[in-house]
Design a binder for these strands. Structure first.
Lengths: 353, 353
DNA sequence: GTTTATTTCGTGTACGTACACATAATAAAC
DNA sequence: GTTTATTATGTGTACGTACACGAAATAAAC
């Protein structure tokens, strides 16, 4: 009684009931031409009646068409090596899915050049991939792009930062607000009553400030939620050369003698570490991201804490989610927040990205 | 250039290089007898060299062995209809995976009877399924069982409550502590300075208190974290008949005139609602779980808030995670917390479980 | 009517693996 | 040596679907 005997499975059963061959059934399943309206209707009815669900494993195995997943992330810039980790995550996923006849097409844009982003999205759109993963750095342009994807039923997932309201398959990345909140929590343990914080948003790119702001919000919220009346000096630095940063920091420090801790809202924290060294100031330094420059400063004792959210894992999961959705049509969580990890010089060796 | 011509894929390529047939390769892949040590070694070397990864889709398709996933949850009791939702989730997952030759074997135990739990675990262990999903209500017994599973490399996932330290494939369920924390957050908005809370743990089963306690911890933590000095009267009620509950509540209310809100740490909240009605007391009532009894009380205005964490979804995800792990050996998140939803009479109609 | 074009349908092979069965090689027994 | 048991290896078919190709049925052209 392992299998009910009369019950052929899938296509064959449909074919039997309709008195046609599986070839014909196949044609109506894929809306291909070459079948008379009459039999087409009959078969469609049977498909509906049986609530036929194709065997996706068999389908993928038999299909010779390769599935294309496009990924769009920034190039690894001189500014920060951050994006090398997501790239590795993409490649790890690629290695896993390529045996199922899936190709991962990697596109890159220049974080400083909006046009390059647009150009790449255009290029992607031209090849009409089966799924897209992207870091939506340029919000408006990304929105326009994903809108077009939606119209063609091309699923897309965001990584690293989210655009709400777009019906993305998933967002996989940090919970920006919470990570700021956590940073503040750390700070509250460290600082005494009379000491204050310097908060630095370092970014040449205005559009990035949206993300940094979410972190700042969370950071501030912690103090409000816990009725801690902590002074926060905030400085936006629009240039990322060392000289400019150094000048701004020096200015803030002389103006606010009570600053004993600096919170940098992104991966540029190692630059700040260098500046402090130059200025011969020893302050607590908290920043973001497990990248080479930062690790070095961490080991040297110039950075105290790094907050990190597994960027490699993000990209890996993004590609795998697309694969699972497209090939296995599994349900995918709309929001996949990464854990918020705290890295110090004591535990960095064990961190798996 | 779509496919490199020389490169046969998988087993065939291995067979070619070893000058054997795919049958022989197949035998060493599955450690089956009937192949000489010499060729076995040769083939193993080639497998390693090629870093051969079997095509899991093809494997599942070709394999005639059915995969068994066992699920172990409480029967739907007279006490609460809670477990009917996870059961539906299981059945939904079953419908999805059965076409891949996977059987879901459903086992049930009596929440009031430890022996029944043990008996069912024994029964499951006897058939040696390929994966197990269970609600580990009886901690010690569940631990013993999952230890045995670990030894046989049978993956298992916990739902509804976790046992830490067991190397479960995943825990899928509520974040108990956080849900208590959230409840407290709600409470802090509602209560005035001079008003206090009654916290009720209603459970005949002592072993359940562990879980209730986690919620209570979170609940209390909120007030501490926010330096709110709120009076919390706590009562453990070990019987779940209406009369006992009513007596306890009445006692507490007369002793503490300032109680204006009751927080019930599990689904028994509708019983409390009935008691309050009987006592002709109108208090704010917060409790757990989207079950029929509670919804009714919610609609009638006798319960104000229900905290819910998609129990059906939990079970569904648990089975699907096992499937993905066993069949597709996908990586599965060790912790899959459900969102903490707040249900009121205004939004309950839209709640999807 | 026959021939030809066109539409409609069936058949065969492939995907990569599993497994039952058949065959070949070797060892054991005489 | 031959026969027989044993071990080692190869072959064929199946899983459920996709798709190319060919055959049959029908329609169009004369």
């Amino acid at each position: 009684m392992a299998k009910k005997d009369g019950q052929l499975s899938g296509v064959k059963e449909i074919a039997r009931r309709a008195n046609v061959s599986i070839g014909t059934v196949d044609r109506v399943l894929h809306n291909r031409a070459g079948v008379s309206p009459k039999t087409r209707d009959k078969i469609k009815a049977i498909i509906k009646e049986l609530d036929y669900q194709p065997n996706l494993l068999a389908r993928r195995l038999a299909s010779k068409k390769v599935i294309h997943i496009a990924t769009l992330i920034p190039t690894v810039s001189k500014d920060t090596s951050f994006w090398s980790q997501p790239l590795q995550g993409i490649m790890r996923a690629e290695a896993e899915v390529q045996k199922y006849n899936i190709k991962v097409d990697k596109y890159f844009f220049d974080q400083d050049d909006k046009t390059s982003f647009v150009n790449q999205t255009k290029k992607i759109f031209r090849v009409k991939p089966d799924g897209v993963m992207l870091s939506p750095d340029f919000v408006d342009e990304a929105t326009a792009f994903t809108n077009k994807c939606s119209k063609l039923d091309i699923p897309f997932v965001f990584i690293d930062s989210d655009i709400e309201g777009q019906n993305s398959l998933s967002y996989i990345g940090p919970h920006l607000y919470d990570s700021g909140y956590l940073a503040a929590n750390l700070v509250s343990y460290i600082l005494r009553e009379n000491e204050s914080v310097l908060l630095l948003n370092i970014s040449q790119r205005m559009y990035k400030h949206h993300h940094l702001l979410r972190k700042e919000e969370g950071f501030r919220a912690y103090f409000i939620d816990n009725s801690l009346n902590k002074k926060i000096t905030k400085v936006d630095i629009k240039k990322s050369d060392r000289h400019s940063i150094e000048k701004e920091i020096a200015a803030s420090l002389t103006k606010n003698k009570d600053i004993r801790l600096i919170f940098v809202t992104n991966s540029r924290v190692s630059l700040v570490a260098q500046c402090l060294k130059k200025l011969k100031k020893k302050l607590i330094l908290i920043g973001y991201d497990f990248i080479e420059e930062n690790i070095k400063a961490l080991v040297d004792g110039d950075i105290d804490f790094l907050i990190c959210q597994k960027p490699g894992e993000q990209a890996y999961k993004a590609v795998m989610s697309l694969y699972q959705y497209i090939v296995l049509n599994a349900t995918v969580d709309r929001m996949q927040f990464m854990p918020i990890d705290i890295i110090t010089r004591e535990n960095y060796q064990f961190y798996k990205n």
